[in-house]
Each structure stands twice: as structure tokens, then as C-alpha cells.
């Protein structure tokens, strides 16, 4: 019966490959899901005297959107974020400006609209590393107690909003 072993082994591999076709090997899952959001205190774009910290948002469900003025996909996502901000049904969005370019960030928001309740300025990228950011845009959902509940890599479109975010937000009572 050992003569059937090679075939059996191959079929097992095919099973894995089939499953593999539906997976994305480049996606890095966040180790923060279910853990406390990393703390930081950063000056805000537009007003260097003011500071923002995640503790400021305690008590409500909120979203952290990591973006940058030079990021093309962020511009695409921007429209949806504006719509969400105006709708008032979505949780507040904090926009972390990743890696310097404060002036460009300010100009872009002035020109295209600001969907964010605060825009902390991560000049060095240190906070990005603390949150495990690998690129822009990335969006986190944090609950009332400051625990990270969701991370999405890449721009959000209507489909992703409806299918991934809305159910999670409902679950958190947003």
C-alpha cells in the first residue's frame, strides 16, 4: 500500500494550495488585537502647542487612520472618510500623519477637507513602529477601554466598510 503514499501526499499538498489561493501571504496581522493600544503623545498638525494621546479618546469607540500626504491610496480613501465624518454615524477618526511632511499634510487637508477629529504628527515614524505600521493607509478600531479590536491594511472602500467594519463596530456598541 506504500505505493499510494506519493499520490496521497500530493493530494494533501493540493488541498493546502487550494486554500492558499484564497489567502494573502503578504498581509501582516497585528499582534495588538485584543491588547491595549500603545500610548503616545504627539503634537497636532496645525497647532504644535496642542498634544494628542489615545487616552484622550477613552470612553468611546474610535478609529486611528494612518496616512501620509504623499500616499496615493490614502487620497482614494479620503472621500469615504469625509463621507463617514459628515454622516455622524461613524465613530470619530483620528488621522496619524506618518513620517513628517507636516506642511504638506496641512495643505492637503485644507484643500480636500479634514475628516479627522485630531491629526497627531508622527515626525520620526517612531509611533508608527510602536503600532506595527507597515505602510499607509492602515486603520485601527479601538474600543471604549482603549483595546485594539481591528486592523485593516490598505484603503477602505464601501465594500470593506460594510462587510468588515460595520459588524465589528456594532459588536462594540458604537
Amino acid at each position: 500500500m506504500k505505493r499510494w503514499l506519493p499520490l496521497v501526499f500530493f493530494m494533501v499538498l493540493v488541498g493546502f494550495f487550494t486554500k492558499g489561493l484564497f489567502l494573502n501571504p503578504r498581509e501582516v496581522p497585528s499582534p495588538f488585537i485584543g491588547k491595549a493600544a500603545p500610548t503616545f503623545s504627539l503634537p497636532v498638525v496645525g497647532d504644535a502647542q496642542k498634544a494628542f494621546s489615545p487616552a484622550d479618546m477613552k470612553g468611546q469607540v474610535w478609529m486611528l487612520n494612518v496616512w501620509a500626504p504623499w500616499c496615493v491610496s490614502c487620497k482614494v480613501e479620503h472621500k469615504l472618510l469625509m463621507a463617514l465624518a459628515e454622516s455622524r454615524t461613524a465613530p470619530p477618526i483620528v488621522g496619524l500623519n506618518w513620517k513628517d511632511k507636516t506642511r504638506e499634510a496641512q495643505e492637503l487637508l485644507a484643500r480636500t477637507g479634514n475628516p479627522y477629529v485630531a491629526v497627531p504628527d508622527d515626525l520620526s515614524g517612531r509611533v508608527g513602529i510602536d503600532w506595527g505600521v507597515t505602510g499607509t493607509p492602515e486603520t485601527y478600531v479601538i474600543d471604549r477601554n482603549g483595546i485594539v479590536r481591528l486592523k485593516h491594511v490598505g484603503p477602505i472602500d464601501m465594500d470593506i466598510w460594510q462587510n468588515k467594519f460595520v459588524p465589528k463596530l456594532k459588536e462594540l456598541g458604537a
Binding site: R3, M11, V14, F17, T18
Partner: peptide, 21 residues
Amino acid sequence: RGAYILGFMLLVVGGSLALFA
């Protein structure tokens, strides 16, 4: 395309291993 190649592999490799057995 991956699915198509996998199907092709199934035929060629699977077929030959079955023939071997």
C-alpha cells in the same frame, strides 16, 4: 491563473502518481 495551473498539476502530477501506484 494559479487555479488553472493547479488544475493542470492535478492532472499531470496526480495522474502520473496514480499510474505509478
